[in-house]
């Protein structure tokens, strides 16, 4: 049985409108160039994998897309809105889930969803919370404090929070990192369903290359703040003489390191 395969990937939805457009995005920390003028886009119904070794600039990029880190240059447009000038409106169409950003552990699942629902100005909030509790199988945990949940359950709560406002752009930073294989498989199917059924585009980071191959329509390979490669994760490895995405990852990460050597 293929536990990784979420669903056959539909044709790349480039004909769909762009939910994210990044142009020449750059960020420096002192003398270190964390992100070096990258440009890319994500379309509706598309899942784009943002890959790269540790320190490649993935989380820095995601933080800039979330508006919690100001770039030194470039432009971010979310669903056509300029993040710099229309911050509140643009962030209202975005949401995210990341393992390093758990929801406050001293509030219950329902309380957290209610508060974030209010922050995202979700209409008919209680109905929406009910739908999400059901969709993410959280009904029995609704009144449990988030700090008491297992890491897998916390991931599901984070994802429920991320879907509160039915975002046009969904950012997922290693969403399956803390899940067992069965739960990770279910989650991949669910996220694939979100991209297919909603007007959502997803930017997904993961170190699990089999997962990326199964879920993503397109990948961007980031190294030392630059996009080295972009394309279909099922075709890229062979096109560059590698057996699979894992081997391509190792090869590109190694080249990135060699570039850095004096």
């Amino acid at each position: 049985m293929d536990f990784f395969h979420a669903s056959p990937n539909s044709p790349i939805p480039h004909a769909q409108p762009r939910v994210l457009e990044v142009r020449q995005l750059a960020k420096r920390y002192g003398r270190r160039e964390a992100v070096a003028g990258i440009s890319f886009s994500v379309h509706r119904h598309e899942i784009v994998g943002l890959l790269g070794p540790n320190g490649a600039g993935k989380t820095t990029t995601i933080n800039m897309l979330l508006g919690v880190l100001a770039g030194d240059g470039g432009e971010i447009r979310i669903d056509g809105l300029d993040l710099k000038r229309q911050r509140s409106q643009a962030l209202g169409r975005t949401n995210f889930a990341a393992i390093y950003a758990p929801l406050p552990g001293n509030l219950s699942v329902r309380q957290n969803l209610r508060l974030f629902g209010m922050l995202y100005d979700v209409p008919a909030l209680e109905t929406r919370i009910g739908e999400l509790l059901e969709q993410f199988e959280l009904q029995t945990l609704a009144e449990t404090k988030c700090g008491l949940l297992s890491s897998g359950e916390q991931t599901r709560v984070s994802l429920a929070k991320a879907m509160l406002n039915q975002p046009r752009l969904l950012l997922l930073d290693e969403p399956t990192a803390s899940l067992d294989p069965a739960k990770a498989h279910e989650l991949r199917q669910l996220i694939r369903g979100i991209a297919t059924e909603h007007d959502t585009g997803i930017l997904w980071t993961s170190h699990n290359m089999q997962e990326v191959e199964a879920v993503c329509d397109r990948v961007l390979f980031l190294s030392r703040g630059r996009i080295l490669l972009e394309g279909d994760p099922r075709q890229l490895p062979r096109a560059h003489g590698y057996e699979n995405l894992d081997a391509l990852f190792i090869g590109l990460a190694g080249e990135g390191l060699q570039e850095a050597r004096p």
Binding site: G67, V68, S88, L103, P104
Partner: peptide, 13 residues
């Protein structure tokens, strides 16, 4: 509760 990332990534001004 290390909530800044969650809070300031919302439309909150």
């Amino acid at each position: 509760s290390r909530n800044f990332l969650n809070l300031f990534a919302t439309p909150l001004r």
